[in-house]
Amino acid sequence: MIRHLVLFKLNEGVERDDPRVVAGVQAFEKLGELIPDLRFWECAWNISDRPIAHDFAINSAVEDLDALQRYLEHPAHQAGVAQWREFATWVIADYPF
């Protein structure tokens, strides 16, 4: 199995209630139901207010590297990523477990 973690940081001046952000969150919330290769899917706002904290997180898992690639290329994932590019940056970690 491969764990896929993503931590998002909203761009300066962008708030959680921005309509673009709300739509982006909704798009990501649906991915667990839309992408068959996902074995585990959760996403949520970070509750930490520490200065080094990111704002939003995805924690997911796929079977193997081929499944990870199919997930990354899936149209629903690509559409969500396109939305988030407008208002956030992110870091990613993929590792076997």
Rank of each mutant, 00 (worst) to 15 (best):
I35E: 03
F28A: 09
D94S: 01
A57M: 13
P75W: 00
A67N: 08
A88C: 04
G32E: 01
P96K: 11
A67G: 10
P96Q: 11
V81N: 02
V14K: 06
A57E: 09
F28E: 02
R39V: 05
V81W: 00
F8N: 05
H4D: 01
V14R: 05
D18A: 11
G13Y: 00
A79R: 08
L31F: 03
F40I: 05
G80W: 00
G13P: 00
V91I: 14
D94M: 01
A79P: 04
E33R: 10
A53C: 06
N11F: 05
M1P: 15
N46I: 06
T89K: 12
H54L: 10
V6E: 00
R39C: 08
F8L: 12
W90A: 08
K9D: 12
L34Q: 13
R50V: 03
V21L: 06
F87A: 00
E86D: 12
D66Y: 08
K9A: 09
R50S: 09
H77I: 02
Y95L: 03
R39Q: 14
G24V: 06
I92K: 12
E29Q: 15
A79E: 15
A82I: 05
A93K: 04
E29V: 11
W41F: 15
P36V: 03
R85H: 12
I35G: 02
F87H: 03
V81H: 04
R20D: 12
R3N: 13
I2F: 15
V62N: 05
A76L: 04
V81C: 00
D55N: 14
V81P: 00
R16N: 04
D49M: 06
D49C: 03
R20F: 02
C43M: 13
T89L: 07
M1R: 14
L7Y: 10
E12L: 08
P51T: 11
A79S: 12
R20N: 07
L5P: 04
P36F: 04
V25E: 12
L65K: 10
H74R: 01
A53G: 07
R16E: 07
V6T: 00
H74Y: 03
W41A: 08
F56W: 15
W41Q: 11
F56S: 04
L72T: 12
N46C: 12
D66I: 11
E12S: 15
C43W: 05
G80P: 00
A88I: 03
A57Q: 08
V14S: 02
A57Y: 12
W41H: 13
R3V: 13
R20P: 03
W90Y: 13
R39Y: 01
L65M: 11
E12C: 04
S60T: 11
V22N: 07
E63I: 04
P36Y: 03
S60M: 08
V21N: 06
W90L: 10
G32I: 01
K30I: 01
S60Q: 07
I2E: 14
V25H: 07
Y71D: 06
N59V: 15
F8M: 09
K9G: 07
Q69S: 13
F40M: 11
